[in-house]
């Protein structure tokens, strides 16, 4: 059992998400930075779909009432173990009665705490991921609070053999400098003027304080729309289209762009102009409020190559963790 004594700002239990219900308005939820979540799981011997605790800007403080093997990845929140600093991206043993405390993020925005066996909350519609809007998954469908008790899943084997495992520097992202996310332009970007299309890919955008699991609202130049007679059913504003489905990662432009994230609204009537590729959504999720973001247009084959490279890196990490002792 893990007892939460401070829930941080917005910490939730997440796995890789809940699929098959987008057509009734249910987004996948799941870890915002899938890479950091997956590496944390590998470091403690879990599969990638085990549930971890995702922490945003400020981490949790937790005491363990049983021995456990843990790893913290993602944003650096200066974690301590019984008051002593511990490394991130590294497997750590904790004993019954020990305390883990995470502070505020110095680099990046989201950290992941994995524990061997996974966080054992009940599955809802096939996933343990928290979706706070309707209150399902995770700990009672909400962010963690002081007093919550999270069960640790059954371990098939003792993973203390992994303690001290760490991933090479080349596998640790540099959140402070990674400001470019790749996008495939399109969807309904015919609504933008040529100038706004160019702005989208050339301008410096900054993450606004309204950036959460639903979407990242960005500040930057004003978006301008091509003039047209609005088609039947589209609504009167030039940013309106006939309501359509929004891909996860898509950039919609009610005015300021919003990149939809894991708890996305699934559809609506704003023009969409492109989609952040799957491997770069986690990079955006690590950009802090007020930090800059640039969109780099790529083609589908580049996106698929990047995805394959991500798979390769993760299997290298898994192999490295499991082979050494």
């Amino acid at each position: 059992m893990i007892r939460i004594t401070d829930g941080g700002i917005a910490s939730t239990v997440q796995d890789l998400g809940r699929f098959g219900n987008y057509h009734i308005g249910m987004p996948p939820s799941g870890a915002m930075d899938e890479y950091a979540h997956t590496v944390a799981n590998y470091l403690v011997g879990n599969d990638e779909d085990a549930a971890t605790i995702e922490m945003t800007y400020q981490g949790v403080t937790a005491t363990f009432d049983e021995d456990a093997v843990v790893a913290i990845t993602g944003a650096d929140m200066s974690p301590t173990h019984n008051g002593d600093p511990i490394d991130t991206w590294t497997t750590v043993a904790v004993e019954a009665g020990d305390e883990l405390e995470l502070s505020f993020a110095t680099e990046g925005a989201r950290a992941y705490l994995a524990v061997a066996g996974g966080i054992d909350v009940p599955e809802v519609m096939g996933s343990r991921s928290t979706y706070t809007l309707v209150g399902i998954g995770g700990q009672d469908g909400r962010t963690l609070e002081d007093g919550d008790e999270l069960a640790i899943g059954e371990r098939t084997e003792d993973r203390r053999d992994l303690v001290g495992e760490t991933v090479g520097d080349e596998y640790v992202p540099e959140y402070a400098t990674e400001d470019t996310v790749r996008v495939i332009l399109g969807l309904t970007d015919y609504r933008l003027t040529e100038e706004s299309k160019a702005d989208l890919c050339e301008a410096e955008w900054t993450v606004s304080p309204e950036a959460d699991r639903v979407g990242y609202r960005l500040d930057g130049p004003d978006i301008e729309f091509e003039e047209r007679d609005q088609p039947f059913g589209a609504g009167t504003d030039p940013s309106n289209v006939v309501d359509l489905g929004y891909p996860v990662g898509s950039i919609q432009v009610p005015q300021k762009p919003i990149v939809l994230m894991q708890d996305a609204v699934t559809g609506g009537g704003y023009a969409t102009v492109g989609t952040v590729i799957s491997v770069d959504r986690g990079r955006l999720a690590q950009r802090q409020t007020h930090k800059s973001v640039y969109f780099e247009p790529v083609e589908i084959d580049d996106a698929l190559t990047a995805r394959q490279e991500r798979h390769d890196r993760l299997s290298e990490i898994r192999k490295e963790v499991e082979l050494e002792d």
Binding site: G233, V248, S278
Partner: peptide, 14 residues
């Protein structure tokens, strides 16, 4: 293409 993991198909603007 909606990124590498979605396909969006517009049948009509109206």
């Amino acid at each position: 293409y909606g990124g590498d993991d979605h396909v969006f198909v517009e049948l009509a603007e109206a």
